[in-house]
């Protein structure tokens, strides 16, 4: 199904929002306003955007430690996201989670997760809930090439296939598990090939082509809503930045490889295509970017003006009352 111009421009806006949000998060992290650890998704924006564009608002997703892109693509509020990074009481997790644990269950975003592969069984449980409810909802697991080598991936996908859960497993293969090349840890170069072992569809798509990601997801979502069970989609992509934003963290990736992938910038490719089709002008694109930057500035100001949590909050929320 061809997407409307409006929807494609919305997807462009989401991709650019992810990029600008993370550029700012990285700057503010280096400035000391954001603590701990920040993992950037820059370069992979087409995956979260293409997948979430094929979902309904009540469908559910789960993220990884590299979660900002998934949050934004599912519709999270930038102010509450940034405030969480800033550790403020107005953040999504009241300042208790930070970058690695942003969640918004009200929009079906079941959380970023600090354990590689840790989210895969959890979102499979959301898939079981969707099946028990029988309202046609689906659930999406985002994970990386690193997680595809861990037990929870295999256990979960097997259960989902055996029970025909309405699941879409989306592998973001960015070619590195932290600093270790996937080439040295994957027995088969395509994670999607593993689908054969679970008797479900497995496809490889260009993860830097947002429309290719969208199309593959559409097909998998239709199948899941139809009660035909899970699919595995492998998006080949690349992160432009190191595993984390930590200053001085080793990044063993060859400079030439990084440059080659930057030349395949998913945003530039998408915007060029939209310009060719006459969907957007250079001026309108610039205007969109400025609007995004203003929105992010607003989120930063909101965060800076928000208070840190009261100390009593440390002992709250251990249990639900």
């Amino acid at each position: 199904m061809a997407l409307t111009q409006e929807k494609q421009l919305e997807m462009l806006r989401i991709m650019q929002t992810i990029r600008r949000f993370e550029e700012r998060a990285s700057d503010d992290y280096r400035a000391g306003d954001i603590y701990g650890v920040v993992h950037c998704y820059i370069g992979e924006e087409a995956v979260a955007t293409g997948v979430c564009a094929a979902l309904n608002s009540d469908d559910q997703i789960i993220s990884t430690h590299r979660g900002h892109g998934h949050c934004i693509a599912k519709g999270a509020d930038l102010k509450r996201m940034m405030a969480e990074l800033y550790g403020r009481e107005t953040g999504y997790c009241k300042g208790k989670g930070g970058s690695m644990h942003i969640a918004d269950f009200s929009i079906g975003m079941l959380g970023a997760n600090g354990i590689v592969a840790g989210g895969i069984p959890i979102v499979t449980g959301a898939g079981l809930a969707a099946q028990l409810e029988g309202k046609g909802r689906v659930a999406v697991s985002f994970f990386g090439d690193g997680a595809s080598n861990a037990g929870p991936f295999h256990e979960s996908i097997n259960i989902a296939a055996a029970w025909k859960l309405p699941m879409i497993y989306v592998c973001e293969n960015n070619l590195y598990a932290a600093s270790t090349p996937a080439a040295s840890t994957l027995a088969h170069s395509d994670v999607a090939a593993r689908a054969a072992g679970y008797d479900i569809p497995g496809v490889v798509v260009d993860g830097n082509d947002v429309m290719a990601v969208y199309d593959a997801t559409q097909e998998a979502v239709a199948r899941a809503r139809n009660g035909e069970g899970p699919s595995l989609i492998e998006c080949k992509t690349y992160r432009w930045r190191g595993h984390t934003e930590r200053v001085g963290a080793a990044d063993p990736r060859p400079q030439g490889e990084i440059r080659a992938w930057q030349e395949r910038d998913p945003i530039e490719r998408f915007v060029a295509g939209l310009m060719d089709q006459g969907c957007i002008t250079q001026e309108a694109w610039q205007e969109m970017d400025e609007e995004i930057l203003a929105e992010i500035e607003e989120a930063v100001q909101f965060s800076k003006e928000s208070p840190f949590p009261d100390l009593e909050a440390a002992v709250e929320d251990v249990f639900a009352e």
Binding site: I62, P121, A126, I159
Partner: peptide
């Protein structure tokens, strides 16, 4: 491991 995680996700889904 998977069935424990499935419980967490289903619990968070109502």
């Amino acid at each position: 491991g998977a069935l424990t995680g499935i419980a967490v996700g289903a619990a968070g889904s109502g």
